[in-house]
Nucleic acid binder design. Structure first.
Lengths: 346, 346
DNA sequence: GCTGACAACGAAAACGTTATCGATAACGAT
DNA sequence: ATCGTTATCGATAACGTTTTCGTTGTCAGC
């Protein structure tokens, strides 16, 4: 017993003894059909288990009620962002489809364009681009960028306050009494990495501390690369007493390296991360970090996008910047020899 | 300068001086058009930047070339599975759309049905269900289940060898010399949790060890719940020297609790997990665990599904079971007082 | 009993494709 | 010249909707 090949609007019309136009009106709550017949049609619809074909509707209406979200890879940050996007989309009548480039982006600028040209206007009504390498391109469909590589220009953008966050992280370490503070930066081509480095330097300057370039490394936001750099840092003759890592993944990798080398966190080394991904509160020791409201960034992105799709005339350079905050956990402490002082800075 | 409203096949036909039928044939490499005109049409297509409307094609062809993957939530396991699915789908001509229930499933049996009825036959050609609560339902479109709650029945299914995995994990601990071994099980309604408990009991029996029911707890695969249970376990007067956790998330939570209580892993407590999610090799200490080939499970699922969509007549009870393996890292050791022995069991 | 207004409904075009099938032309064989 | 064959191409119906607009019926008001 194979299932009957799916009822169409014509089947419903025939069965209810009305025209397809009437059925359509009932479905869409359009004016011009008596409550009596409407009720009857609804009965038949339920009886047949009819559901309108999204494909046909899309063709007719020139919109698919689907929005796409493009990510380079599904690391914890993207996954968290997806959750936020998923939260925001519920109840809006839109569906969310996720495209992952599967991590094979590899510094390839413009990966998102390949996807979007195929998709836009035919499969999705708009898209959220996560960490796009290119902004300002006209894709023929609304697009909002989250945490883009390049500065906000031409496209609505969402990110968090990277500069202030980095400043808070560094100030926290300085307040604890650290003086030799290393920076394990992100990928230099990413705007967020540049901003975090800027915040770091600002805080160091404000604290009257010189930035020793020897202690500024590039971890590329990647656990492997960061681990290698951490190994170098901690092998230095006059090694840093604290590390500010560009993201939590790097920070966790750093803590692991410290552990391998017999250094205890936070006793021998303080570590601060950035992002506050779920793992930050799970690992041991739990990680002091800068919280980005990742989920909210996801939510706001789809809300903004849906607004654009519905025709809202946002200025092209809308830029939503969400606040960051310091979350103090167990990976930071005053350096050996100093009594612990202030623990709250934010 | 707004973008011209997207070229249609008719525009191409007009510009190239041929009929739409001919253009269609060129696009789909159908027989019946001379190489000359084909070349010319291709030129015009490039010139206009024409891309066929996926929506119109879907309506006409009764297939969307999209497959859906439904997950309850985006925890690390699902995310990893998605990557595998993404790998497998590249180059097949299918697109992958991800639906996440956003974690609000909450033991609600049948959440997947709501989604699928709207989707199948209209937005997707088939679907992969991750950890579905219901199997054997006819959705009118091909479906394959990954790691289902209930036993394999009526639907092609993919999972890993949970029983053997759990047996290996437990045997590893027994070989190290542990005798008081606790089980921090998963959600009792999940088949995988039941099978892992079975494997645990088999290994204990094989080792001649009694299972003390006091040491068998339910962690529900959830970090919070597991942490609470771990606290109880480790506060026991005669506390276990080793814990076999139902998944890595629980194992990591257990290690954190141990840390809080001043117990050192692996010196004072050995911990084994299950899954081998990326975090398992990142945390400190790194986690001894049972590796499930999660990505491969994702790949195999979409391969199987695409086969079904293409008309392959798989028997409805196809059941692919992938092997598990023991990965020994730094969270296990012989109990205090005993010299370390065998470290390799697999 | 007419007219006008209004509510309820349906016929048909359109959205952008693809498949079928008939039309035309070219050409070799009879 | 006629026929059959083959290669190339185009007109058209269909896929399942929505929307426009015309048709019909009803009824109040004169």
């Amino acid at each position: 017993m194979q299932p009957s090949p799916r009822a169409t609007i014509r089947d419903v019309a025939a069965r209810a003894g009305v025209s397809v136009a009437t059925v359509s009106k009932v479905i869409n709550d359009r004016y011009g059909v008596s409550e009596q017949t409407a009720a009857h049609v609804r009965e038949v619809i339920a009886e047949l288990g009819y559901e309108a074909s999204l494909v046909a509707q899309s063709l007719r209406n020139h919109q698919t009620n689907v929005i796409g979200i493009l990510v380079a890879d599904l690391e914890p940050f993207s996954a968290e962002l997806l959750k936020g996007a998923g939260d925001a989309i519920r109840g809006t009548g839109f569906e969310l489809v996720v495209y992952s480039a599967g991590g094979r982006v590899g510094g390839h600028v413009g990966w998102e364009q390949r996807y979007l040209s195929r998709l836009s206007g035919t499969l999705v009504d708009g898209a959220v681009l996560v960490t796009p390498t290119v902004v300002g391109v006209n894709y023929g469909a609304p697009v909002v960028a989250v945490d883009p590589h390049t500065g906000p220009a031409g496209q609505p953008t969402i990110d968090s306050d990277n500069v202030t966050g980095a400043r808070m992280a560094t100030a926290h370490l300085i307040t604890l009494g650290h003086r030799r503070i290393a920076l394990l930066g992100g990928r230099p081509d990413l705007l967020s990495a540049q901003l975090r480095e800027r915040g770091f330097r600002q805080a160091m300057a404000a604290g009257g501390l010189p930035v020793e370039e020897e202690l500024v490394r590039i971890g590329e936001y990647d656990p492997e690369v960061s681990a290698a750099q951490a190994r170098l840092l901690l092998a230095l003759p006059d090694r840093p007493t604290a590390v500010f890592a560009g993201n939590d993944l790097s920070a966790i990798a750093t803590m692991r390296v410290a552990d391998e080398l017999g250094l205890r966190v936070p006793d021998d080394l303080s570590v601060v991360g950035f992002d506050d991904i779920p793992e930050a509160s799970q690992c041991s020791p739990t990680l002091t970090t800068i919280r980005q409201p990742i989920r909210e960034m996801g939510s706001r992105a789809v809300e903004l996008l849906i607004g654009l799709i519905r025709g809202a005339e946002e200025p092209a350079d809308t830029h939503i910047m969400l606040p960051t905050s310091l979350v103090v956990r167990n990976s930071t402490r005053a350096p050996a020899g100093l009594p612990p002082q202030d623990r709250s800075t934010s």
